[in-house]
């Protein structure tokens, strides 16, 4: 057996290990029901509940923005983002939030907005916290 084959086999072995651990990084889009049962980060795709109250008042706290999201099952849930309110938030068609439940609120650490626009499908990416 050539040395290079041994190296190749080691690499394949590492690859298998990596792929099996990488599976933990994957998830399907969750809903608030599963978020409540889970203790880890979940990703939820939903739409903004436009009739519900949105709260962002920098004069009180520039790092507190709350709003309601309706998930794929139609459940509405209050979401809190410890950051500023993104530009054109109200116009978003779809919101993808990453985070977890805490004390009845969904705390988002990451948010991706999809906005309809006259431009190319321009999206706004908000990092709530450093990663």
């Amino acid at each position: 057996m050539k040395k290079i084959h041994i190296v190749g086999m080691i690499m394949i072995a590492i690859a298998i290990v990596m792929i099996s651990t990488a599976a933990d990084d994957l998830s399907t889009y969750a809903d608030f029901q599963t978020a409540r049962q889970s203790n880890s980060l979940v990703k939820i795709a939903g739409v903004l509940s436009k009739d519900k109250e949105m709260q962002y008042d920098p004069a009180i706290d520039p790092n507190y923005f709350s709003f309601f999201v309706k998930d794929s099952k139609g459940e509405e849930q209050k979401v809190v983002l410890y950051g500023s309110k993104p530009q054109d938030f109200e116009l978003s068609e779809q919101i993808v939030i990453t985070g977890k439940m805490k004390d009845g609120d969904f705390i988002a650490s990451d948010m991706l907005l999809k906005c309809p626009s006259k431009y190319k499908d321009e999206e706004i990416y908000i990092k709530a916290a450093e990663s």
Binding site: P58, A59, P62, N63, Y82, G83, S84, G99, I107, A108, S109, A128, A129, E130, S131
Partner: peptide, 26 residues
């Protein structure tokens, strides 16, 4: 080591959960 100086000047690493590290000031 990037650090937000725009707030939480006393936030020590590990004391706050990541998403609670406040980043903005008025």
């Amino acid at each position: 080591n990037k650090r937000h100086i725009s707030s939480n000047p006393f936030a020590t690493r590990g004391l706050l959960e990541e998403e609670l590290i406040k980043k903005n000031v008025v």
